[in-house]
Design a protein around this nucleic acid. Structure first.
Lengths: 341, 341
DNA sequence: CTGAAAGCGCTTACAG
DNA sequence: CTGAAAGCGCTTACAG
């Protein structure tokens, strides 16, 4: 591959200084038009590759952002990520991605790596039980950070997420309006604020309607299709057979519906099921899933925008909470409660 | 955040040179045990963050690898990625990820970024119609590269993928053995070698069994659930109503089954459907999907391993093709052809 | 076992 | 409008 082409290579063969080459390549008005063109043409010809590490060492800006989520194979995060990607591409920022799988150490390793690389900022959906100290490490090192979907208690940073309590009440009230009186809540964990908010929203909607809330009707855990599928038998064996299931997310709901179908019942007819998130595949599930749109594209876009603003010094308020307003999308997985139930 | 802590900060407050600090932190045996301990303790105390950019500028190794695939929201790539991640984590390598969405320019931008960052290597599933020149750019700049799932014609680099022709014949022969005579092939494109291989495999299995292959029975395109879902009406309107569908991948198959169900037929009973890949969700689809395991974990692990080996100079042969042997996993979406069909 | 010095490839005041 | 020089924070011969 011959000798590596650098600014000085270009400069020498053109008889100008590296400073001029540097400025010319970055379109500085300080350099004469003609010189600029000559430099650029020659750079292209030589196959010059800009060395970002050197530039970054000098300027202490890297053009790299970090994104950490629980698991990008979860389409909920996938959809957020896609809109982050679009926003960052437009601003010619590179991002590095990591899953933490709710392991605090894996997350910490990644944050450390970001600091070593001189990342300009971080978008994160923090792991369960992330210690405040891990976040302080970021601020101490001057790394602008925003949260998506989740946050860390006691840490004042901008948060972008859906309004969970309101969203789950939309789903619960929808089932209630269809005449359901025994409604279970399937999936999710009470270890996250999101989990607690959604459970609270479900409970308060039930109470407001004068309906009973039974502890047994809360099946904690499932957040994936596989787990939702497995929860079906437990759900179908519940005391006082619920006729409706408010699920933590679309994945658990789709899994649950598959499990219900496997047991010989018809989801959407015998049992009404609601999801949460409105993933792209909710609409093509069988039956099509009634669910709550959770604003993934908005969350991603706004969070990326806010981070870029922070990096540029436009100081958005700390601890600012941006709640995306959820919407109920009614499809075929919910119907009027069956007579006699 | 006070002053930035660097090697010289540690050195000065300890009365040793930065060279010694550098060596000590990297556990060099050149440094006395006692000094090493003192340095490390002090670095920790001061909250020293290793500056990888500076190190990388000096050593021209970055510890960064690039991974480019079509779309990580596709669980096929997601599953490969997960195993790449495991392998790279174990070797303490950071990776940067990008989707190309089959847009050659987006892919080129990313490769350029990798070179600017001084990446050590690339794992890629190249975009359709990737020009040879783009790949030559990588080799000219000394970037070790391996292919997964797809390759670029005329470019001699190691490739890791499943044996498509053999795999699709497993699915086709399975339907044939169940008595199906009219079998369509749904989804995928003939613009990739994978697409051509699978279609050829299907055609030759049909011919070998003395069955007719009709052009109309080839519905090109669908690679997603949504597209598979939409293809259902087209499939059901096909001349001489096929009784079986060999699908390009699990996503198209699951979408197709949903569409068939929506039309009032029962997939797995009225129409037999096979998938390809054996994604985690194939087993919990309704009906559970008969499909061909495509070795995603193997592909990811072997490709990552091979790249690391190349980077370390263990020169694995160019143009070497590693075919993972697919396996048929029979579930409920295929059954003996219905009488009278 | 430790230190002084050079250099990786940029950018940025500063001088002209 | 252009150039000479310093410096970003490391690592690596080299000398002692």
């Amino acid at each position: 591959m011959g000798q590596k082409v650098k600014l000085s290579t270009i400069g020498e063969s053109l008889g100008v200084s590296t400073a001029t080459v540097s400025l010319a390549l970055r379109d500085s008005p300080l350099v004469a038009e003609a010189t600029r063109e000559r430099v650029k043409a020659h750079a292209l010809e030589l196959g010059y590759i800009y060395n970002r590490r050197a530039a970054s060492l000098r300027t202490s800006k890297s053009g790299i952002l970090g994104v950490v989520v629980h698991d990008i194979m979860n389409p909920f995060y996938g959809e957020i990520l896609r809109s982050i990607e679009m926003e960052l591409d437009r601003n010619r920022q590179t991002f590095i991605l990591s899953n933490h799988y709710d392991r605090v150490e894996k997350q910490r390793d990644f944050l450390e790596t970001l600091m070593q690389l001189g990342a300009d900022g971080v978008i994160m959906s923090p792991a369960i039980d992330t210690p405040k100290e891990d976040m302080e490490l970021l601020t101490q090192n001057g790394l602008p950070t925003v949260f998506i979907a989740r946050s860390v208690p006691g840490v004042d940073l901008p948060v972008f997420r859906g309004d969970d309590k309101f969203g789950i009440s939309l789903a619960t009230n929808h089932l209630i309006s269809l005449g359901h009186k025994r409604i279970a809540m399937i999936g999710g964990t009470d270890q996250t604020s999101t989990g607690r908010d959604r459970y609270e929203g479900y409970v308060s909607a039930m109470r407001k309607a004068g309906l009973e809330v039974k502890d047994e009707w809360r099946i904690e855990g499932p957040r994936t299709k596989a787990a939702g599928f497995e929860a079906a038998s437990q759900f179908l064996a519940l005391p006082d057979k619920p006729t409706g299931a408010v699920c933590w997310n679309d994945l658990a709901a789709i899994g649950l519906m598959n499990g219900i179908a496997r047991a010989g019942l018809t989801p959407g007819v015998d049992i009404s099921v609601t999801g949460y998130d409105d993933l792209e595949e909710a609409a093509i599930a069988t039956p099509a899933l009634t669910t709550v749109w959770n604003g993934q594209p908005e969350v991603g876009r706004l969070a990326a925008r806010a981070l870029l603003d922070r990096i540029e010094g436009k100081h958005t308020p700390d601890g600012d909470l941006t709640l995306i307003k959820p919407e109920l999308h009614i499809r075929q997985s919910t119907s009027r409660v069956v007579e006699g139930n």
